[in-house]
Design a protein around this nucleic acid. Structure first.
Lengths: 234, 234
DNA sequence: TGTACAAATAATATCGAAAAAAGTAAGATA
DNA sequence: TATCTTACTTTTTTCGATATTATTTGTACA
């Protein structure tokens, strides 16, 4: 009698999707990161309300959260839009990412205990498993692969002793992820991503910080260059 | 009815008084950073609406923005509260700050042009000017001094070629600022902050990266240690 | 033809109240 | 006395509507 809202919570025991605002937040974020919502696109409240089937307030709260993270751009009295994209911006993201992850990785290699090593081994295991199941072409667009990829990179730096730094790196990873999707690169040429990650894993477990950092930098910069060459943003 | 000059804005050309949400955002942020709102304090919407004399929606938007930055803690269906504070957390902030500002400073010293140098000289000038006008005791609590202090530190790293990294540093500066206020340290003992900044300025302009980084690290860690010794958070 | 101004239109920001959820306290049962 | 249930209160979240602000369109005038 009380529950006329059926679509939201099918599993009511543990608050899976508790508030509407968070639900819209997640969906909006996904659509922006995957490139479904194109850079520069004007986010009209009316349209979004219809498309995400929600109310004014939750939508607005979601947009405000996203704007604080730079995931959408907010202009006072002028609404919201999807942030623009450019090769320059990708360059800045990549550069910053290399700096921050170098620190986080070196610190992790210095401080990491056996739990940390286990996390890395496991994360790589899942990455490899997923990569083998999925054909090369759709690898980059598979949400499953992307999640394992993300978790592998986070595992590497998870012993750096600064959750703040980890958060920053995660944010940069997200932004880079968006560019990967925007570029819509179909063929990954003769690049063997899994092997790159494997090499990286070994260097880290060997505690060879210099080698690991070198591999990580190359991993990021090569990806960025490939995207700039092949794809066109904005 | 068409008269655009109404009650709110006396200068209607550029939206000076932007939106109510932004106004509340600023005031809330100030009250949290200055310690007027204590760590762990429950932020009840009703009370805030009365205290800040605003409506439901703008307040809620402000809180959502703040929560995305970690400036307030959000728990689903359970409202908002001021983030807790601890010596550990301050340690993490300080550690991370040293890492990030080292990079940003080294890059700035490497790339900085004459404009960058000018920005530093000017920023220090204002810092010194303000410091001399204000008595030592109230220095740390003066909003004016704090602004110049902030701008000086940002000027140092402003040529690092990554606005993202600058934003991260600014966020860390804010968080550290909160701890300075929470500790309520009255006497700054025999510490001469202005001289520390001056030394730092010279090292940077001399392009002595190693020395500059050393001074910066010391600046941050000494401050943090002083706060942990003297003040008690939570 | 171009510019300034004013009304019309569209979009955003805000308000007040209803709905949903969480928290609290009293009463029943063992 | 301890624990569980149930009704009640507080608080958060959401909706529908209104007020405010920006943008576009149309019209008079130079």
């Amino acid at each position: 009698m009380a529950g006329h809202a059926s679509q939201t919570t099918s599993t009511p025991d543990t608050g899976s999707i508790s508030t509407q605002a968070s639900s819209v937040y997640d969906r909006l974020q996904t659509d922006i990161l995957t490139g479904k919502l194109r850079p520069g696109h004007k986010l009209r409240l009316k349209d979004l309300i219809k498309h995400y089937d929600t109310g004014n307030s939750p939508l607005r709260e979601a947009l405000n959260r996203l704007s604080a993270n730079g995931m959408v751009v907010r202009e006072e009295n002028r609404g919201f839009r999807v942030p623009p994209a450019s090769a320059d911006q990708l360059g800045e993201i990549t550069r910053t990412r290399c700096w921050l992850e170098e620190i986080a990785l070196r610190e992790s290699i210095k401080n990491g205990d056996s739990d940390w090593e286990e996390r890395i081994v496991l994360a790589f295991h899942w990455l490899a498993r997923t990569a083998h199941r999925i054909d090369e072409a759709s690898k980059s667009t598979s949400p499953e692969w992307e999640q394992h990829h993300r978790e592998f990179h986070l595992a590497l730096i998870s012993a750096c002793n600064s959750s703040i730094l980890i958060d920053f790196c995660a944010e940069l990873h997200q932004r880079a992820f968006r560019y990967r999707n925007l570029a819509e690169v179909v063929e990954y040429r003769d690049r063997h991503e899994l092997e790159e990650h494997e090499e990286l894993q070994w260097a880290v477990l060997r505690r060879d910080a210099d080698k690991a950092v070198e591999l990580l930098r190359k991993h990021h910069t090569v990806t960025a260059e490939l995207l700039v060459e092949t794809g066109h943003f904005d």
